[in-house]
Design a protein around this nucleic acid. Structure first.
Lengths: 226, 226
DNA sequence: TTAGGTACTTATGTACTACATTATAGTATA
DNA sequence: TATACTATAATGTAGTACATAAGTACCTAA
C-alpha cells in the first residue's frame, strides 16, 4: 500500500528551463529554420546561469529539436522522432511488462498490414520475398531461423513504403530477440512464410489477412488475458 | 545533386561523453537500480570538465535512464520509453511525410486490433462503448464529432489492456487532428461506431476485422501509392 | 573592379572555482 | 534505545575566463 507513494518530483532548474523553452517555442509558433536568441540572452531572460541553460539546451539538441552552429546561433529543426526513441530502447533496462506491450504492438502492426501491402506491393517485392523464403528449407540452425524471420518480416515492413514504420520495426528487433528466446517459439505455425508469399502473389487482401493471423497464432495464443 | 551532401557531423565533447557513458553502462551490463560513480570520478575518468559531463548526464536524466539524488549519487533506472517520444512529437515541427507515416501507423494498429480486443474485452467494456456511441446521434457540430472519435477509438485501445499502446495512441492524437483537418474526412464511412460495437458484442473476430476495415476505408483510400 | 587575404567581432564550446543545498551516516545526549 | 545534532559527501547553481570557429568588414594587389 505504501508502495503507491512515489517520491515527490523535485525539479531542477534545468528541468524548468527546458519546459520554459519548449513553451517559448510553441507560444511563438516558431517552426523549423527559425533562429533562437543567443545563450546569453536566454540565460539572462530566464535568470539562470549559462550552465543551467546549456544543460537544458543540450537536451533539446540531443532530441534534434535545435541545432547550433558556432557564431550563427541556434536554429530550430525538425527532430527525428525515432531518434530519441532509439536512445531508450535498451532491453537490458526495460521492465517485462513494457516488453510484452511492445511485443503485442508488433503483432498488431503485422496483423493490420494487409491493406498497405496490397496497396503498394510490386512484382519486384514479390520476387524478393520468394528469394528470401527459398532459403527457408534448410532452416535448421536456430540462429539461421531467426535471421530468416528478420529478413522476411523486415521485407514486409519495407513493402509498406512507410519508412518510419520500417525503422520502428528495425529498432524493435532486439526486444523480440529478448522475448522470443524465453519461450513459445518452438510451436510451429500452420502457415509458413512461403504460404504467405504465395497468397500475397495470387490471393486477395482478406485471404492474406487471415493467413497472417494464422501465421502469428503461436504468438497470439501466448498472450493471454491480463 | 549537391543537396545530398549534408555537413559533416562535428560532435561536441558532451555528445561523445554521452556515448561513452552509454557504452559504459552496457559493457558493464548494469541494470536498473545499480549505482554509478560520482560526477567527479566520471569527469576525471573521461578527462572532461564537470560542466561537459553534466550536460551529458542531463540528457540521460531527461530520458529517465538515470536518477540522481543529492548525496546518494546516481542510480540507473528503467526509462519510460514513451516519455522521450512525447518530447519530440510536435506537429508544429514535424515534416509532412513523417506525419503521413504516423497516420498510417495508427491505421495499422486499429486494423490489427481485432484479436486483442476479442481476447480481452469484457461486458463492462461493451457497456462503456454503448454509452459512448449513444451520443453519436446528435453529432452535428464538428468539434463534438472529433471528441466522439477520440472517445470511441480511445476506448478500443483501452480494451486491449496494453497501456503502452494506449499511451501511444493518446500522444499521437494531436497529429491526427492535424492531418484530419486537412481533408478526406467529409466522406462518411459505411460502418458506424454503433455497428462496430454491435459486432464486437455479438459477432466474431473476423466479422469485426472486416467491419473495422470498412469503417476506416475513407482513410485507406486516401493513402495512395507512394 | 574584383579576387583574395587580414583583422575584427561574436556566439558557442570548454574549463575551473566557489559556494549552496541536502541526504546520509555518524555521534552525542537524554 | 530513541532522538537530536553534526559532519560529510554528493549534486545543484553561479560566475569567470578563455578557446574556437564562423561570419563581417575592410584592405590590398592583380
Amino acid at each position: 500500500m505504501i508502495n503507491d507513494l512515489t517520491p515527490i518530483a523535485t525539479s531542477t532548474r534545468a528541468d524548468i528551463v527546458e519546459i520554459r523553452i519548449r513553451e517559448y517555442l510553441s507560444s511563438k509558433k516558431l517552426k523549423a529554420g527559425d533562429t533562437l536568441p543567443t545563450e546569453l540572452e536566454l540565460a539572462e531572460a530566464l535568470d539562470v546561469s549559462r550552465n543551467v541553460l546549456r544543460e537544458a539546451l543540450s537536451r533539446l539538441r540531443m532530441l534534434g529539436l535545435i541545432e547550433t552552429k558556432k557564431k550563427r546561433g541556434m536554429v530550430l529543426s525538425a527532430p527525428d522522432i525515432l531518434g530519441s526513441f532509439e536512445r531508450v530502447l535498451n532491453p537490458q533496462l526495460m521492465d517485462e511488462n513494457t516488453m510484452k506491450d511492445i511485443f503485442e504492438l508488433r503483432l498488431l502492426l503485422e496483423l493490420g498490414m494487409a491493406d498497405l501491402l496490397y496497396l503498394r506491393k510490386t512484382d519486384k517485392d514479390i520476387a524478393e520475398l520468394e528469394r528470401i523464403v527459398k532459403k527457408d528449407k534448410n532452416a535448421d540452425a536456430e540462429e539461421f531461423r531467426i535471421s530468416q524471420e528478420i529478413a522476411f518480416h523486415g521485407k514486409l515492413y519495407e513493402i509498406t513504403g512507410n519508412t518510419t514504420l520500417k525503422r520502428f520495426q528495425t529498432m524493435l528487433m532486439p526486444i523480440f530477440g529478448f522475448v522470443l528466446n524465453k519461450s513459445h517459439h518452438s510451436i510451429k505455425s500452420e502457415v509458413s512464410h512461403s504460404d504467405l508469399v504465395q497468397i500475397l502473389k495470387t490471393g486477395d487482401r482478406d485471404a492474406f489477412s487471415k493467413a497472417m493471423q494464422e501465421h502469428l497464432r503461436p504468438h497470439l495464443e501466448f498472450l493471454g488475458e491480463r
